[in-house]
Simulated assay, not measured.
Amino acid sequence: MSIIELLAIAVGLSMDAFAVSVCKGLSRKKLKFADMYIVGFYFGFFQAAMPLIGYYLGIQFSKRIMSVDHWIAFILLGIIGAKMITEAFASHSPDEEENDSLGFHHMIVLALATSIDALAVGVTFACLNENIVPAVSIIGIVTFLLSAAGVRIGHSFGVRYKAKAEFAGGLILILMGVKILAEGLNII
Rank of each mutant, 00 (worst) to 15 (best):
R152L: 10
G154I: 02
T124P: 05
I80D: 05
L102G: 06
G78P: 03
L102R: 09
R160W: 14
A34K: 15
S62P: 05
V39R: 05
Y55R: 04
L102N: 07
F89I: 15
S62D: 13
G81M: 02
F125K: 07
S156H: 14
F46A: 11
A148Y: 07
V151Q: 06
L112A: 10
V123C: 03
V136H: 00
H70Q: 12
A149W: 13
A148H: 07
L26H: 09
F125T: 05
S137W: 11
M84C: 10
N129I: 10
V123K: 02
R160P: 00
F61P: 00
F45E: 06
M84Q: 07
T114M: 02
A126C: 03
T114P: 00
N129D: 13
F41M: 07
F157M: 07
Q47D: 01
F61M: 04
N99W: 15
A49D: 07
V123N: 08
N131G: 09
N129S: 10
L77T: 08
D35F: 00
K162P: 06
F46I: 09
S156A: 13
A82Y: 13
R28K: 13
I80S: 09
F46L: 10
I59C: 09
A49H: 03
A148K: 01
D69S: 12
G150V: 00
S27D: 15
S101A: 12
V133R: 13
S137R: 08
K164F: 01
H70W: 12
D100K: 11
I79E: 02
F46D: 06
L145C: 08
V159I: 11
R64C: 14
H92C: 05
L110T: 08
Q60G: 07
I79L: 11
S27C: 15
I108M: 08
Q47I: 13
Y161E: 11
V151L: 01
G78Y: 11
A88K: 05
T143P: 04
G58K: 09
K162L: 10
I141V: 12
G103Q: 09
T143V: 11
K63F: 07
I153R: 03
P94T: 12
A118I: 04
G40M: 03
D35A: 02
F46G: 06
I116T: 14
A111Q: 00
V68L: 12
F104L: 10
L26E: 06
I65C: 05
V121M: 05
I116R: 00
I116E: 07
G150W: 12
A165P: 02
I53A: 02
K162C: 03
G150N: 04
I79Y: 15
K162Q: 06
L31I: 00
H70F: 04
H106C: 10
Y37F: 14
A90M: 09
A163Y: 15
I38N: 06
Y37D: 13
S67A: 11
F104D: 13
L76G: 01
R160N: 11
Y161V: 07
I59K: 15
N99M: 12
A163L: 10
H70P: 02
W71D: 11
I53K: 06
F45V: 09
M107R: 03
L31P: 04
G44T: 13
Y55A: 01
T86A: 14
T124S: 01
R152E: 10
